[in-house]
Amino acid sequence: MTALIRAENLGKTFGATGGWFGGGSDQVRAVDGVTFDVDAGETLALVGESGCGKSTLGRLLLRLIDPTDGTIRFEGQDVTRLSSAEMRMMRQRMQIIFQDPFGSLSPRRTIGQIIGEPLEIFGLTRGRRARRDRVAELLQQVGLPPAYMDRLPRQFSGGQRQRVGIARAIAVNPAFIVADEPVSALDVSIQAQIINLMQDLQRDAGFSYLFIAHDLAVVRHIADRVAVMYLGRIVEVGPKRLIYDAPQHPYTQALLSAAPEPEVDTVSRRIILKGDVPSPSNIPPGCSFHTRCPIAQEVCRRDRPPLAQVAPGQLAACHFARPNPIPTGNAA
């Protein structure tokens, strides 16, 4: 089976051209040599600390920004080589949902105009009447009354705004959706509504998600596979069950053990990492995690570990990768 989307050695350096201030010292290697697949209909979750490059990676896949190096194949086609006109048509197949879908939109446009825009751009409906009918249908699909079509963004709550963002994304029948922290800003009770909606829509339409999130409980619920990023690189990727039950990279192990859960008698054997996340403009040599890794050795400061298979479907980038010696949960 070929992947729906495949990134190979993908990289992005910000400030690469020297920028306004001339020098190259402020370069940020936001994404570094990333290779992975997303299969049709699956949800790949992307987790990692703030600034590790998750949003940049999501934007690269949709070519909202251009990669510095590497390739992206979508349905077998190299999208890094498409002209901007070809890319525009390709966008119909790939959509994005943001944490706050209205952050980047005009507050003076109605919900109907916001959702109708992609329909118009891609010529999916003919005429105003048909467009309004389709918008009404989409609103219903995401659980909003069609009568809300003529309302303005400020009249909506956070959860309702996220529903509008989802309606806009699915309007063009995409095959792939990047969801960048879609529930991070929502209250727990509203978060559950949006997660259920996203899963229902995926089941009906069969598209794939790249689901960017920092809440590991949410990821465990929604993902098929999980990729863990640290300072621009994927340090571990694999099926959800293996990542949560047998993480092999020390960073994944620490991350999972640190997530607080509302449970009694959670074995409170947290791995508390020392120190802070290094700056992405000054990534440590060798294994970039060695400054915080509880089991780092001399070799880690020198040699960068490759992302290698550690179990069927599971890859980890660590010289000493081994199953988690510390249970991350209560019951095994």
């Binding site: 309702q160 727990v188 559950a192 997660i195 859960e261």
Partner: peptide, 19 residues
């Protein structure tokens, strides 16, 4: 409504409406 370990296959419970 909090996603729980061991209940991934189930649909999340959702409180209807908003605050």
């Amino acid at each position: 409504s909090v996603p729980r370990r061991g209940h991934e296959a189930e649909r999340l419970y959702q409180i209807p409406g908003s605050v």
